[in-house]
Nucleic acid binder design. Sequence first.
DNA 1: TCTAGAATGTCACCTGTCCA
DNA 2: TGGACAGGTGACATTCTAGA
Length: 728
Amino acid sequence: MPFRSAGGFAPGINISWRVRGTDMTGTNTHYILTEWESETNTNELIVHLYTLPARNVFEQHNENGKACSDLRKLNKSHVIDFFEHLIASWQPIEHWGEYSFINHETRAIDVTISTERTILERLLLRTIENVQPRNEIAAGSRKFTWLKPEKVVQNISIHRVIQCDVNISAAGVISVGFDLNHSFRTSESVSDLMKAGAILKGDRVIDKYNNMHYEFDEVSGDTISDVVPELRQSVIDYFVKERKQAWKVDKLDPKMPVVYVKMYNGQRSAYAPAMLQKELTFESLPPAVVRQTSEVYKQNANLKIATLLEEIQNILRRTDKLQFSKRKLLVEQSGYDVTKIENPILSFGRNVTQPQPKYGLEKGGVAFGQPLAINLLVYPEFFETKLEAITAFNEKLCALSSKWGVPLTILKKSGAYKNKSIDFTNPHQFAILLKELKDTAFKELTLVIATEKIAGMWYDSIKKEFGGSAAVPTQFVTMETLQRADDYILGNILLGLYAKSGIQPWVLSSPLASDCFIGLDVSHEAGRHSAGIVQVVGKDGRVLSSRANTSTEAGEKIRNDTMRQIVYSAVDQYQRHYGEMPQHITFHRDGFCREDLNSLDEVMESLNVDYDMVEVIKKTNRRMALNVDRQGWETKQGVCYVRDNLAYLIATNPHPRVGTAQPIKIIKKKGSLSIEAIIHDIYHLSFMHIGSFLKCRLPITTYYADLSSTFFNRQWLPIDSGEALHFV
DNA sequence: TCTAGAATGTCACCTGTCCA
DNA sequence: TGGACAGGTGACATTCTAGA
């Protein structure tokens, strides 16, 4: 058995591991990451590595995919995988069919070669997939899906899915990362759906035994006992004789018709419809089903982690290639340091400092403000029907704003539009009116009041005309919200208005480690890609400028020239605010950094500015949790695992009914700051989202970069919006 | 500097719920 | 009101290599 002890993790309590030595903190707290380092090193794994000759220059990266699948058929029971020119197997491959190899080695992989690491990662993952009981778990495509549904409601079944990734480090350390998700599909098979006429050509279907996705094509005239040309045998014989999986077909009606499905490459495949289920998208689910099932997939940390730990052990103990020991699940045993970052103290007006924005604003008002005048754009009908409600709302808004130290004036310009004889629900007529308004009356920040339906029709035209072409920021509020506005609603609307007019409600009371921060993102939507969206943030967390870079990028990679323009612009903004050059700039790259850092080095060196390049990864397939005195698993905001230049950080505190926190991954690519200082800055910057009472998961550098690039792509943003944050 | 293809990764989108 | 989270898809990017 690969495990030292066979005890399971019953939800929350029955944790049977023992940590060798003393707990570092002295308390009985266990910290885990859903990433398990194996006791097995790559040098203990001997593989057969075959090098195949390149046969077709145009297909050199995929031609071995076909070879690999043919070799698997010829050498049943072997686990075989490929990558590039290599084919790997645990045992010698005896039958080669039409293929030949030019080299064969039997050895451990060379961990310094990335291609060899990748092929072993793939071989290990396939090995783990192959040893799972096929009548219990569908394994494939890095997913392990339980055949038995967790719950069935109105013929919709929810299945547990564990997603896995295998990683090999340059030191030969093998680790498996995992996370728990759920999958929705019809509980009835495609065969049942056919009888009810509930399956159509083009519907997405899934092979429930192996996670393969297809597009439903047509019903054939043959039955599953007839010989079909593609298989040169019947579907039943194929599974009984060739695949030795009689259990898949032995209960099926032999008169069941064969169906055809289309694969991603357009190829057709013959199937027994009883093996297929129809895939369902989240929005297609009836609300009643969502209500009755959310408890299954919206799991609190204790349920999620306990299930995950128990099931990943079951999955991994089925293979003898990799050994795992339970103590390695404790992050300290995998070389991570556990730290807790304290929440920042925020500074408001009148020298008030407070961790909570709402209380800080009540006591001290905004940190930096000036009187504010705004326009109202109201759906004309409301002047007759809802005037009282709107007036009451305006009064409450002004009262709260003055309490926060910002005298608010609402300009009366309804005369400019309310008696126009146009159809306000017609987007074309309305767009023409907007052109007129922005040139005459509406030059200031505008609050738009309409019903949810009207707002939906107006949103794009208003953001384009006012925001994109006239640089007039707008804040929307629906009639429904306005009528039930309490202090939280009013507060968030006010914060939105402030952010859009350059009023700073709060700043960080203690300085960040770097002088200046730049958020980098690339956005692609409707075929357009714009990049190098720069958000310059100062030492107190204040956004000095936000600007969308106009250059259109070819891909996810930001061009050298664009990078230089971003740096020039940031240094310029910094000098205007502080009258001096920044000594150090930190770049927060949303996603992987693929930019050429040598070229950036050159620019920064000649400007005599130090820099750090940091990647902020949003989706990691990992969870973090801690367990105090075996009371159950929980997540704690501010907890952080650090190892070398890598860190996982929990920056949110979701309610248990909402789900389990998603950690962010932080990687220091290059620079002089300590990783601790970098994490600290990122965490504190996630409190600097000034458009709402609530903090965000990401630092505002990447969060705002993301928002503004989306706005920019939709032409809702002017080229230079200065201090105003149109996008909050 | 460009190209190939498979694998992989990220994003926006959608709907609903909960909370501050 | 805003934001996090839930799952799945489509869209589209990247990576790898080596020859022209």
